[in-house]
Amino acid sequence: MTKVSMTVNGRTVSGEAEGRTLLVQFLREGLGLTGTHVGCDTSQCGACVVHVNGQMVKSCTVFAQDVAGADVRTIEGMANADGSLSVLQQAFQDHHGLQCGYCTPGMVMSAAALLKDNPKPTEVEVRHHLEGNICRCTGYHNIVKAVLAASGQDVSKIAAE
């Protein structure tokens, strides 16, 4: 076991990690931040996406020790300071961009990374960006709509409003 420290959602934290301890295990089991989920073991589904030094990564495919000292943000750190939902989170609720909620943290983290780099993405760009986040419930319709809405674009003309 090695002591690993990092900043998570603005707080400096530390915990024990084996070499094989994945970042997602460090977050979920070490820190009790269970909002980050594990949906596969081949780095495909994206339920575990978090931000490391501002970039989205799959926390199931990164060793905790490899990101020692990093600035990590998880779904638990995405709401506004007063606890209210961020614009992106609110758009997911407003447009029914989630059902069972399991892929949702990864979706939000992934979409947030997109909007940081590309504040007004097209539908095609949103869909392409989300190719590493699998959702089995929504058929993606309302997720894509929520991301477009969060970017300030008019989604009222999208089918089945």
Binding site: G46, V52, M56, K58, S110, H129, E131, G132
Partner: peptide
Amino acid sequence: IGDPAVRNR
């Protein structure tokens, strides 16, 4: 290659 998260690592 892969997806955006994979491309960051």
